[in-house]
């Protein structure tokens, strides 16, 4: 890149390698998809490592990563940009999606189903052979940079059918399915991220396994890997295992007194 021109995506570049432990061949599959700039859906439960995975891939591919957490109030202009007023009149400001499209970043729309369906249709012309982004307010047609890729994440577990992706949106993506890693690997990840011993991590993972058995029996989702890392961090700092699990798992996960009792039971079954 020409050194005279400042990189508009400099802030989105990932300098240090994000820790990611592959559970299968997802890294190779992602690299293949990226070679063809294929749009991707990452599916999986909360806190299983989808965001970390895409950060890791952006780092290893040397691409800037523009992340957007979607929500119901998000409008198309939050993605593509809008006119703002400055000293000389109105001036167009690119939205995060347009930035990534113009300058060749990976745009990651986290929890894409949270955005309203009429907002997500702006990605349609980007995610087929055209690879264009029309900025209708500005009257410009942005052709995607050859390095641009769109990745969205989505959690099929807890959304009601009222909030689902339109089939026309879905069909534009290839999908990678994520789940919590198997016990041994998950314990390694928790041990690494929380900097705790492997045996403590294994106990935490065993609690999480029990809680995941209660999915659809009162829990939308079980204890996630991220929660285990939180618990591990608190235990490392000297908080008692019971208190840290109570704080990071039981109380965080449920308001139902019976469910809380059951979760406390799992903690006690590990830590006495």
């Amino acid at each position: 890149m020409n050194a005279a021109v400042p990189d508009p995506l400099a802030g989105y570049r990932i300098e240090a390698e994000p820790f990611y432990r592959p559970a299968g061949n997802e890294v190779a599959l992602y690299e293949q998809a990226y070679r063809h700039r294929m749009p991707l859906i990452l599916k999986g439960p909360t806190g299983c490592g989808k965001t970390r995975f895409v950060e890791h891939m952006a780092w290893s591919l040397g691409r800037p990563l523009v992340t957007l957490a979607c929500n119901e109030d998000m409008t198309a202009s939050d993605l593509v940009g809008r006119y703002l007023l400055d000293a000389n009149g109105t001036a167009w400001h690119d939205g995060p999606l347009t930035l990534a499209v113009r300058h060749g970043g990976i745009c990651y729309l986290d929890e894409v189903v949270e955005a309203r369906q009429d907002t997500t249709v702006v990605i349609h012309p980007l995610t087929d052979a055209r690879r264009i982004l029309p900025l209708d307010k500005k009257g410009e047609l942005v052709h995607a940079h050859p390095d641009f890729q769109l990745v969205v994440s989505y959690n099929p577990g807890y959304q009601s059918s009222a909030k689902d992706m339109k089939p026309s949106t879905r069909q534009r993506f290839a999908a990678l399915e994520f789940d919590y890693p198997h016990s041994g690997l998950e314990a390694e990840i928790v041990a690494h991220e929380a900097a705790v011993g492997l045996d403590l991590a294994a106990k935490l993972v065993a609690i999480a396994r029990c809680s995941r058995e209660l999915k659809h029996r009162g829990l939308d989702e079980g204890v996630s890997t991220r929660m285990l890392i939180y618990a591990g961090v608190l235990i490392r700092d000297g908080v008692s295992p019971r208190d840290s699990c109570e704080m990071t798992m039981t109380r965080a996960l449920t308001d139902d007194p019976d469910m809380a009792r059951a979760l406390q039971g799992f903690v006690e079954a590990q830590f006495g």
Binding site: L214, R217, A262, G265, F266
Partner: peptide, 15 residues
């Protein structure tokens, strides 16, 4: 614990 809580507890441990 209520029996509902015990059933959840048992489900979690036993799978």
């Amino acid at each position: 614990d209520s029996f509902a809580a015990l059933a959840l507890f048992a489900r979690g441990l036993a799978g």
